[in-house]
């Protein structure tokens, strides 16, 4: 055999498909840039410009008024706690209604699934803005918006977890003559508890973040303080609040991770 071609191909993949995808991506990218009327210079220089502005104006953070933020911080966390509690109960009911394992009536399943996916697919800020529009400003609007979105998220996740529970055990219970609620209580729920804890803790993390943001659209909590301070050009103060927010979120992540390790 001749050894004329010493180069060994490392890739044996079809080389045309990736090229095609890359070309498609490039075309879409160009279209997006042209459609948005962003100049490439602005795009490339945007990040450095922002970082420069950030260090010139936002620095140094002012942490003098930290004590004044405490009520707003407590509100923000409180909204998240209450929303997580209420929505985890409501979402459990919906999850049971959506899963094929626990609900044999197809029409109810479809209706609940559609309801949950509408809740989930409208971004939570839009929910906040809509609810402020309907109810006026206030903390309750924030809690309501959080509950709606969290039901959307948890309802789907719970239903998927209940779906994953094997049908065999439930069938064994059914063969024993257990009633529907006995199957639910002794068959479904015990197996569902670990994923229930996991998803609920995860949604609490999301809720704390969302609760901060919802303040921006007028539902109380610490978010509104960032907005007012930036509008008043108190950039140092705004950065101070942002640091408080970062600490809340990192702390929440730490707490939920610890709880998760202990409980599951």
């Amino acid at each position: 055999m001749s050894n004329l071609n010493p180069k060994i191909m490392l890739d044996q993949r079809d080389s045309k498909k990736p090229l095609l995808i890359a070309a498609l991506l490039c075309a879409t990218f160009l279209f997006a840039v042209i459609y948005l009327k962003i100049s490439i210079v602005d795009m490339v220089m945007g990040l450095p410009n922002f970082i420069l502005f950030f260090f010139q104006n936002f620095f140094p953070p002012s942490l003098e008024n930290v004590q004044q933020y405490i009520p707003a911080v407590l509100d923000t966390i409180g909204y998240a706690v209450i929303a997580t509690f209420l929505s985890s109960i409501l979402a459990l009911i919906l999850g049971i209604l959506i899963s094929e394992n626990t609900n044999k009536v197809k029409s109810i399943r479809v209706i609940c699934r559609a309801f949950v996916s509408i809740l989930r697919n409208i971004p939570f800020v839009i929910w906040g803005a809509l609810l402020v529009y309907i109810f006026g400003l206030g903390g309750i609007v924030g809690v309501l918006a959080l509950i709606l979105v969290t039901i959307g998220f948890l309802g789907k996740s719970y239903a998927e977890s209940i779906d994953e529970i094997s049908g065999e055990k439930l069938e064994a219970l059914r063969a024993n003559g257990s009633s529907y609620f006995q199957i639910l209580l002794h068959g479904v729920l015990p197996q569902f508890v670990p994923s229930w804890i996991n998803w609920t803790l995860f949604s609490f993390e999301i809720n704390v973040r969302a609760s901060v943001v919802l303040g921006l659209v007028g539902s109380g909590g610490i978010g509104v303080l960032i907005d007012t301070n930036i509008n008043l050009f108190n950039y140092g103060e705004a950065l101070g609040i942002i640091i408080v927010i970062v600490s809340i979120i990192l702390l929440t992540e730490f707490v939920t991770n610890t709880l998760r390790k202990k409980l599951v």
């Binding site: 943001v213 921006l216 978010g223 942002i242 927010i245 970062v246």
Partner: peptide, 10 residues
């Protein structure tokens, strides 16, 4: 950990 809307404001 900084929400995107807060980035947006900045």
């Amino acid at each position: 950990s900084i929400p995107s809307l807060v980035w947006g404001l900045m």
